[in-house]
Design a protein around this nucleic acid. Structure first.
Lengths: 178, 178
DNA sequence: ACACCATGCGTACGGTCGTACACATCGACG
DNA sequence: CGTCGATGTGTACGACCGTACGCATGGTGT
């Protein structure tokens, strides 16, 4: 790939977009707000991302990668000797215990796929990859159900602002595993 | 209450807002688009709903009432002699089998609460009322888990555009019920 | 060396938005 | 009957937006 004057430009724009979504939500995302946050001129954002959808796709992809890493780092998930429900509940704790900004950004972009077809393939990716991983510990049906339940629990925590209850999550996740 | 020239004006604006969200999503919701859809002047929407949040609150409240009615109409949910998991799976089928517009509107407004504190109390209401109803058939912990799982399943169906699989839903919902 | 082109930059245009405000209209009530 | 407030209507303003476009710049390949 050809070198650019600012080889990090594109990446810095994506990072700025994620910060903007974290601070003001998708409604506050525009070529201008991102350009200001990334400290680049307006024309630069429109050059690298022709439409806002393109930018959101890139941001969601990057957010997904972050979560995929946090899953991959939890090696216990692949070890068939551990308590799967407890491992998943602990993962939720990692996501929701401290600063929730990353989680809010992930869900905001994830849910934006409802109305933006361009985001759907990327949103699907996350759920499918996660389910595939879990299917290796259980079976495809259970894996899908676990992902759905985790989704629902996280969503309710984010929506109500309530604290995440790891023990409750472990208990109900365990029920889904046959 | 004092009679107005158009006593239905406020209600017609809410109905129009729901149609707009169904057609163009929350991103397409504005005082002007709603005014056009309701066939009232711009000043009328701003008079009845000072901010867009006010309008969304009214719309979400009305959408919630619609779903609450569909739940209340399913008397089997209150009859302790029936298969609760099957009843809930059938309810999901009613929501997702045919036209999904209503469901999309509900979730779009529901999820908008992530970034709009004004919507949170109304969004909470729905989940809490539903869980309270289910708690009478099981227990509070199970009820919350059922709502979370249903939420997750519906969300994945809406996001992926996949068909709703009632038998799958029944199976995994049953696992959550102790 | 040189030309080409990806990349970077600044600006302008037309459109939509929230908001505000002045005025019109009609019901309620003293 | 006359006044007042609630409701309805039209218009204007400033802000922000996506997009487009012309020009500058400096790698890259020949």
């Amino acid at each position: 790939m050809a070198r650019r004057y600012d080889p990090e430009r594109r990446q810095r724009i994506i990072d700025a977009a994620i910060r903007v979504v974290g601070a003001k939500g998708i409604a506050g995302l525009s070529h201008r707000t991102v350009a200001a946050e990334a400290d680049v001129p307006l024309g630069s954002t429109t050059y690298h991302f022709k439409t806002l959808d393109d930018l959101m796709v890139a941001a969601l992809r990057q957010a997904n990668e972050g979560f995929a890493k946090s899953v991959a780092a939890r090696t216990a998930l692949k070890d068939s000797g551990t308590d799967l429900a407890a491992d998943l509940a602990a993962l939720g704790s990692e996501w929701l215990a401290g600063d929730r900004t990353g989680m809010e950004v992930e869900y905001e972009l994830y849910l934006a796929a409802l109305r933006r077809p361009a985001l759907r393939p990327v949103a699907d990716e996350w759920g499918r990859d996660f389910a595939d991983l879990l299917a290796r510990r259980t079976d495809p049906v259970t894996a899908r159900a676990l992902v759905a339940l985790i989704d629902g629990i996280c969503l309710q925590v984010l929506l109500t602002g309530a604290p995440y209850e790891e023990e409750y999550a472990r208990e109900v996740l365990a029920r889904v595993i046959p």
